[in-house]
Structure formats: C-alpha cells, structure tokens
Design a protein around this nucleic acid. Structure first.
Lengths: 229, 229
DNA sequence: CGCCATTAGATAGTGACACTCTCCGATTAT
DNA sequence: ATAATCGGAGAGTGTCACTATCTAATGGCG
C-alpha cells in the first residue's frame, strides 16, 4: 500500500508517519521508484504498537524507539526484552549518591529486595525509582513501614506471576515479542485504573457517599466546595 | 523566614518558588513591607508536597494546582479529595463516542464495574482510562478475557482496601489530607516499581538468567545482542 | 502525450510545558 | 550611605512531538 493508504488505515497523518520513519520507529517502505514506496501490514502493526505505547503507555519517542529496537533484534531473548521495556518505562529518576537521604532510601530498597530473595539486577533503574519514592515519602514525614509495604508486595507478586506465566513462548517470534511488550505496558495502565476504581469503591464504603453524584473538584475550580448547599 | 532561606531549605531556586506562587501552587508569604515577606514551615511543607508530586508523581503543574486547591479547601471531604487526586492523576484520555471500538471498550468497562458491584462514579475519567487500554489491546489483537483480568482486580482490591483503611481520620485536617494525597500518588509509584521487580524475578526464574549480569539494551544501543558470545 | 495530484526527503516552524532570566524600584542590614 | 536583597512582572529558554512547507520526481488519467 502507499503512504496515503497507510495513513488512512492507521488514522495517522502522513507527516507523522514520515516523522516516525525519520526517527527510526518505523522501517521505510520498499522503494518502487525514486518517489514511491510500498508499505505492508507489518507497517500497520508497528504503527498500532507505537500508538499504543504513546497514547496509553505515555512513553516518549526515545523509549518507544528503544523498545521497537529490541523487538526487531532477533538476538534479544524474552527476558531481556521485558527488561528493556521496563527500562524504557522508567522516567530518568536520577540517583544522587551525594545525598545521604538518597543513600539511605536506596539501602532500604536493597534490603527489601534481599529480604524477599528477588533476583533483580543490582543496578536496575527500577531500584532507583523505588528509592526515589521512599525518599519523597520520608521527606513528607511518612516513613515506610513493612506493614504498609506488604500489600503492595503481595499485589505485585500476584500480578507478576500471572504475567510471566502468560508470556507466549511459542509461535512467531515477532508476534510473541510484541505481545509481551504491549501487555507489559498496557496492563500497567489497566492495573492503575483498577486501583483507582477499587479505591473509590472502598472510600465510598468507608466514608459514605455524600456528593458521590458529582465529579469532585473540576477544572479551574478546585477552591470551591463540593457540596452544593 | 525569607525567600532566600526558603530556597536554601527546600533546595529550589528562588525563581522557581516565585513561579509556584505566580501559578497559585504556593501561597504568598506574609508581607512585612513592600519588598519583604515572611515564609513559614507551611510553605516548606507545601514545597515538599509539590516536589513530590512533580518529581515522583510526574504530575503537570495544572494537576498539582488542582490537588493543592482541594487540600486547601476546608469544605472538601476526604472521599472527594481522593477523587480529586485520582482525577488529577489521569492523563486526558479523551473519549471518542463516534468510534464504535471505543464504545464497545467503554461498555466492557461498565460491565466489569457492574459485575464487581463497585461503587464508582459513572462518568469518572478512570473508566475512560481503562477503556482506552482495552481498546489499544484489542487493536493489537489482544482481547481482554476475564481470567487475565482477575489477578489485576484481586491485586487492586488488596491494595485499595489497605490504602483506604490507612487514611487518617483524626488529627489536624491539613496534615491528614496531605498524607492521603501524597500516599495515593507516591504509593502508585511504589506499586509500579515493585511490579517491575517482581516481574524480573519471575522472568529470571522462568527463563533462566543468561545475561542477567548485564543491563538489557542500553541507550542508543537497542539493536545489538545482549549475549556477549 | 500532457498535466495535475501524489510522493520521498529534507528543513523549518508550532504550541505546550516548566521553568529561568532580566529588569525595576523599594528596602534593609552594615 | 550604599551594596545587597527582595517582590513582582514580563520575556526568554530548552525540550518534545509533531506539523507545515518546499523541492524534485514520478504516476496515472484523459
């Protein structure tokens, strides 16, 4: 198919498709002449993956590029691929070894990982991410206690076990790999949305439902009361 | 204290503090003269909250503004406050009622909520967020089945129950409210980090640990193999 | 065969965002 | 008295993800 058709079928402007090609997210079409190229279904699939990662996963272009690079690399195994996706998902979260608070938070993280016996890369940015959250909590006067963490660990374990069990190991590699990455990113959003709804439900049951029929604190209006009367 | 001291103690440039005041995230200091104002501990606390929401929660300024607006509004109850925080956390996730795929995804979401009996606002953006993820999954040829969703629902329930139970209902309102919001936002990140680590552990146990001693697919390098030999 | 629409490829521009800089006149500690 | 600091406001900066424009070369219809 031609670009215009790819554009129609994907719903993306031609300019955006060109941009993705320039950035290396999407392979060029097979050139049939100096000003003509042919695109196939694999381009459409790739565009759908890109849009899923961008719109739902909210990943920056650079991260999407890393992920599709790993997807395209036949030598990358599934374990490493998941690692790459996790890597790409993490915001920078720069460690600051000079900050003593940071060091302490990071040591807490390492201690927890060791305690759980998890086989996690020692220098993965995920550890820094968790340390960053710990540090922020402590700064706000909300230290982390084991009993607070337990439910999260339990939940994370339930989910991760299921997810890794569901990773497809047979069939065409490209397909399996795309599935693994997409589910990893998209189900993160599913989890967060479900958590919010479960919170709302639990909150409604605990605090009653006065004002439940109205959305809370709308745009540009946060300083007014929620109760109408 | 003066701005310069507030700047030193918070670690933020004076310019940034002024910017937050301009944007309405931080109240002005009490003016002691035309060119002098006095800041207190509440300003420092607020700055810490803002930075936590920005750096760890990665929330845009506009969302932080909505949250602190709700925190400052004495008439907003805890239930609504949590709703506001959830609202603010959601990226736009614009619904498109014209798209039949979208409608179907949204109906799936509503059916699930009804099935679970959750008391969730009918028009909350969280539903749209979940529908967006469902739609993207379906577009990628990965339809959602109940058995895939179950672990996420279970995990979300475990966490939400714990979180709502932990919301402080006594003590100074400002403090309680800040705690509720901050834990909501920050523990989201804790959960995500723990999920990634649990995934890595489960993946290592399932797929073996070849190449585990090396970070996967580093920056600008995603197209090379991970296995050294 | 002629002509207008389309295309590849490159360069430049846009709008949103979160600061960051500069300037002003007033004030204040030394 | 005077150099430094302050509050307040406007303009400038860098990044990001597109989006628009331009050029030259086809493609396909009449």
């Amino acid at each position: 198919m031609k670009v215009s058709e790819l554009s129609d079928r994907s719903g993306l402007p031609v300019q955006t498709i060109k941009y993705y090609i320039r950035e290396g997210l999407l392979p060029k079409g097979a050139a049939t002449a100096a000003t003509r190229a042919e695109y196939g279904d694999e381009h459409l699939d790739r565009l759908r993956l890109i849009r899923a990662l961008r719109e739902v996963g909210d990943l920056p272009i650079a991260s999407v590029k890393r992920i599709v690079g790993a997807v395209d690399d036949e030598t990358v195994g599934l374990h490493d691929l998941l690692g790459t996706a996790a890597y790409a998902l993490s915001p920078p979260a720069e460690p600051r070894p000079d900050d003593p608070g940071w060091r302490a938070a990071r040591e807490d993280v390492d201690a927890i990982v060791a305690e759980l016996g998890w086989r996690v890369t020692p220098d993965t940015p995920t550890r820094d991410l968790l340390a960053q959250a710990f540090l922020a909590l402590r700064r706000l006067g909300l230290p982390i206690v084991w009993s607070d963490l337990r439910p999260y660990i339990e939940a994370a374990t339930i989910i991760a076990e299921h997810e890794i069990r569901a990773v497809p190991t047979e069939g065409e590699r490209g397909r399996a790999v795309q599935t693994a990455v997409a589910t990893n990113v998209l189900y993160e959003k599913v989890l967060l949305a479900l958590r919010r709804m479960a919170q709302e439900d639990a909150s409604a049951r605990r605090f009653g439902d006065a004002g439940r029929d109205r959305a809370p604190a709308s745009e540009g209006d946060a300083s007014r009361g929620t109760r109408p009367g």
